[in-house]
Structure formats: structure tokens, C-alpha cells
Design a protein around this nucleic acid. Structure first.
Lengths: 218, 218
DNA sequence: ATTACTAGTAAGCGAGTAT
DNA sequence: TATACTCGCTTACTAGTAA
């Protein structure tokens, strides 16, 4: 979302457009934003096109209301500010369950990892990872995570190859305990890998595509 | 402040730059922002020029820290999001001081009103009201206000005429205590009438046309 | 490696104006 | 009154590259 559009959306929200339809003309909005009527009009068109607001054009003015999508964008922004100013010890993600390519199982079964999980996380990880695709909008939170101190799992070697270090954070998924695993050397990903002492798909009765809630403890 | 610069400042804050110096190269920043190294470099130059960050350029990378001014800008933004999403007990208005037609004084000096002000608001109102013209756009917020429970001032009669009931909300104007008065029977107006135990024009050293900040407590 | 200048291109803005 | 189009001007972006 373009930064200037987010600002406009915020202004509309401050006028109450998340809760009610707000009656406002493009000229009034322009005055509020200290810009031209034409630009204000364009802002509204863009926000509408992006699905952030709905508009009802009357003969005079227009009734504007922020959509669910628009409110979500604002919520996300708000969360980031909370993260900045509040001393938070947890980060919340929502996402949906996806299938990996069986790699998770391969890795978690390496004793080099498994032993460290047991020692540093205090549980024996069920073979495999539960992969959760987070919404693109939440990638900022993921990045944030990478800067926090984590439970470190060291790299190790076998006869065949080297396995890289990973970072872990204690976490819950739909209130079930476990941890998320972040490869130290990884490109940007929108997948969270969750390990747990339990077979989560069964325990939580979840399948691919289901929405889940992940809480990460810092 | 330009919207895109605010976004960058927020990103730096998320990296911890409000609390510590953060070591980051323009290229790294560029990757996080999904933009070019040149643009990231320009962002940092602009933020520096605006006094939002301080930079220590080393031979490699640079140490960046958000200044007090920068943090203030973020705080202001955070406040606005709180206003949007929290069950707030206050509403903010900005507006400018205007002169009424002396009516305020006539009304506030009626003992029927003055006695009730003293009883229900806890102060003896200085004769007259300070009138603040709110920006037209904020009339939407004013409309919200009319739905909240207010301190009620009852109508009364004198030998000559009837004086209508009014609603009051405790409020501050530029941090000075008082209340705003909304006539029960009134057309929509973009004027807020402020009463206070003090002579506000003198106490706050304000005159017609000055911008003031009003906080209304619900 | 790094920052940041220059220059050409793309995006955003607002005056004029059609509707 | 409104909204929103066109179009010339300004601002922002990035490739190339110097330092």
C-alpha cells in the first residue's frame, strides 16, 4: 500500500469512517489534508480501486466507509506502533496451514537438531514441521522477529553435509505449545515452521488451508 | 512530514533505532523496504536533514539512531491509531479561536446556568465562552459526540424567557481545564463553546485566529 | 565493500475544465 | 453546487558510476 494512501485512510478513520459512513466532499477532504480538490478526489478513487473504502456518490458529497480490508491495513500499522512503544513480549500471527515438501521431517529427524531441541527447548520434537503461511501484510512482523534474541540451535556436520544453525522462539499455535524455527541463513519467506512434541494436525484437528493463530514469545 | 519518510522512520524504529544505534547499510535497508540502494540512501539523507535521525558513518555501514524529534513524530502517529482503535475516553479537536457576538457572556451570567455549572461541573464559570471554530471536516466527530452521555444542564425559566437545556463535556483547551457546552436544540455548528473558571484568552495568551487543541473527555 | 552524485524515467500534483 | 478528466509541471525513483 502506498504510504500516502495509508495516511489518507488513517485520516478517514479518524473521522469515524471505520464505524460509520462519513459524509464528505472531495473539497472538504482536500482542505483537511491541505491539498487540492483534484488530488483528494484521486486519493478516494485510488482507495476505492484498492478496496480500502466504499463510496456512495450522491448528488452532493459522498458517503465513505472504510472496508474490512482497509481496517485490516490500519490495524497492521497500529500493531507496528504498539511494537515500537509498548514493551511487548509476544507477537501474534495469523496464517493458514500449508504443506511443505517433507523437508521438515528430514531436518527434524537429524539427531544434530533433535538433541539440541530437546536440550534447549525441553521437548522432543515430533518429526516434521507444521508450515503456516502468513499473510503478506505480516511480513514486517516476521522481519522484526529476526532481530530479537532467540534460542540458538547451532550448526553441525554429518559425514555427508553441513546443517546450518537456526533460531527458535517458544510459541503456541491455537494454544498448543511448541516453537517456531527460523533458518539463520534464509531468504525472505512467508512461511513459519512450527515444531511441537505433538502431531499437531491430529491434536488440533487442522488440515491444509485452515486458519491458525500463532503466538510467539520473545 | 512526508508520508514515505514517516514509513521509513517507523521501519527504523521497528529495528530498534529508538532505543539504540542500529548498524545498517543503505543496501540492507533497501532490501527491507524493497527499494533500491540509492533510494534508501536518499531516505536516510532526508531524515537526517529533517533532524529525525542521527547518523555515524563508518567505513562500512552506518550507525543510525532516531532523535527525540523523530520519536515525537512517531508518538503522534501512534496516538492517532490509538484514537482509531481503542475505546477512547477522549476526542481531540483542533480549531481556531473566533469571537462570538457576546452571547456567551449573556448566557453564562444567567444564574440558572451558572448555579448548575458550579454544582455539576464543580467550578464557577468565567463569564463568557471561548469560541473555537473546528475545521469543517471534524463535524463528523462532533456528531459522534452528540450520542455520548453528557453532563446535563437543565432548562429553566426567568420572568422574561425560557433558557434551553445544554449538554456539557469536561474538556481541556491547550491543557487548561474547563468544559464544552453543546446546546441541546441547535443546528449543526462548527463552533465549540468552551467554558472555564479562568479568563482563557489571558491565561493561555491566545487571540482570534490562534490554533488551539481541545481534548474532550467522555 | 560502502555512500551518494548525476541524469534520465516514472509517478504524483494541481490548474483548467468537462460533466 | 459536485466529481473527475487532461495535461504541463514537479517530485521521486533507479541505473550508472564516482569516491
Amino acid at each position: 500500500m502506498k504510504p500516502y494512501l495509508l495516511q489518507i485512510l488513517k485520516e478517514l478513520a479518524l473521522l469515524g469512517a471505520t464505524k460509520n459512513r462519513v459524509e464528505i466532499s472531495s473539497l472538504e477532504l482536500a482542505k483537511q489534508l491541505e491539498t487540492s480538490q483534484q488530488t483528494a478526489s484521486r486519493y478516494l478513487l485510488e482507495l476505492d480501486k484498492d478496496g480500502m473504502i466504499t463510496r456512495e456518490l450522491g448528488i452532493k458529497k459522498q458517503l465513505i466507509r472504510i472496508t474490512g480490508k482497509g481496517e485490516e491495513a490500519l490495524q497492521e500499522e497500529y500493531l507496528q506502533y504498539q511494537q515500537i512503544f509498548e514493551l511487548t513480549n509476544k507477537i501474534r500471527f495469523t496464517g493458514k496451514v500449508v504443506s511443505g515438501m517433507g523437508e521438515g521431517r528430514y531436518y527434524t529427524e537429524q539427531s544434530g537438531y533433535a538433541d539440541q531441541f530437546k536440550e534447549r527447548l525441553g521437548f522432543v520434537a515430533f518429526p516434521g514441521t507444521l508450515n503456516v503461511e502468513i499473510r503478506h501484510i505480516e511480513k514486517n512482523k516476521l522481519r522484526l522477529l529476526k532481530n530479537y534474541n532467540a534460542i540458538q540451535i547451532d550448526e553441525f556436520e554429518t559425514d555427508n553435509r553441513t546443517f546450518g544453525g537456526v533460531k527458535c522462539f517458544r510459541a503456541t499455535i491455537n494454544n498448543a505449545d511448541g516453537a517456531i524455527v527460523l533458518p539463520l541463513r534464509s531468504h525472505y519467506s512467508n512461511i513459519l515452521e512450527f515444531i511441537s512434541p505433538h502431531f499437531l494436525r491430529e491434536k488440533l484437528n487442522i488440515k491444509d488451508g485452515d486458519n491458525v493463530k500463532i503466538m510467539i514469545y520473545l
